[in-house]
């Protein structure tokens, strides 16, 4: 474990990367998210915690407009990435998702080679000019995802042949290959064993120097381990948002206290 934990608390000086104001989400008649205001900071890992159905994944999916793909979903309010409204008509959601990458609960590599899995994003977004550049992007992404040493000799092997933990790191490599500014992770470790989980957590901590990371997790210990900021959602409301150490030692809202201490809320 990093011994600079105390220094890491001083994230308040970081600027806001994403600002959300009055965000409401409806799935048909169901009011899933109620009036959420939050500033996601740059260079910071932010954890969203809360019981199932509290709206945390819904909110995460608002941040790169994944809810656009849900026909019944309506998103109201304002979400800005670097001061730019991401729900503006002129914003191309595909370009947005290159800037705000996502890693899902279950590793979902493409049925392609390890190399092609990582090269896919940079290729479709035209981020590289030639094969050499693409090779470089693939290597750096795999290195950042702490997977390079394990796969460098079998880049042409199918991505689906890797172990679960390796597949998830491959998905992370794929997500960071387009050089996103924000990385959204929806329960990235729920299908992984403790060792693979530790590797992904270590990776998240390293990624923080280059991206904002937002992670949804059901494991409160994981939220406590990896994040500097924690947001607690309950019944569609953002109940409390603050420095992770404060949330886990002295939460201000009784609902947060009930949830994190494992009491019936």
């Amino acid at each position: 474990m990093n011994d600079m934990r105390i220094a890491e608390r001083t994230v308040s000086t970081n600027t806001a990367k994403i600002t959300a104001r009055g965000v409401q989400v409806y799935y048909g008649e169901n009011h899933a998210l109620k009036d959420v205001d939050i500033d996601i900071l740059s260079g910071t890992v932010t954890a969203f915690i809360g019981p199932s159905g509290c709206g945390k994944s819904t909110f995460l999916r608002c941040l790169n407009r994944m809810n656009d793909t849900v026909a019944s979903a309506r998103v109201l309010g304002e979400i800005k990435l670097d001061g730019e409204d991401i729900y503006d008509k002129r914003v191309d959601p595909v370009t947005l998702r290159a800037r705000v990458g996502m890693v899902f609960q279950k590793p979902n590599p493409f049925p392609k080679s390890i190399y092609d899995n990582v090269a896919y994003g940079p290729k479709i977004h035209g981020l590289t000019r030639n094969k050499t550049e693409l090779d470089e992007v693939v290597e750096t992404s795999l290195r950042k995802a702490a997977l390079w040493n394990e796969v460098k000799d079998r880049l042409t092997a199918p991505g689906t042949g890797l172990s679960g933990g390796q597949q998830q790191r491959l998905c992370i490599a794929r997500a960071i290959a387009t050089s996103p500014e924000v990385l959204l992770m929806d329960e990235p470790c729920s299908a992984l064993d403790p060792i693979a989980t530790a590797q992904v957590e270590e990776l998240i901590d390293e990624l923080r120097s280059q991206f904002s990371v937002v992670i949804v997790t059901h494991s409160m210990q994981q939220a406590a381990r990896v994040s500097q900021r924690t947001a607690f959602f309950h019944l569609g409301n953002l109940v409390e948002y603050g420095e992770t150490g404060q949330i886990f030692t002295n939460p201000r809202d009784p609902r947060t206290e009930s949830y994190i201490t494992g009491r019936i809320g």
């Binding site: 210990q221 406590a224 030692t249 994190i260 201490t261």
Partner: peptide
């Protein structure tokens, strides 16, 4: 048990 918040205190 990994106590938190008031449990930890």
């Amino acid at each position: 048990r990994g106590p938190t918040a008031s449990d930890l205190r």
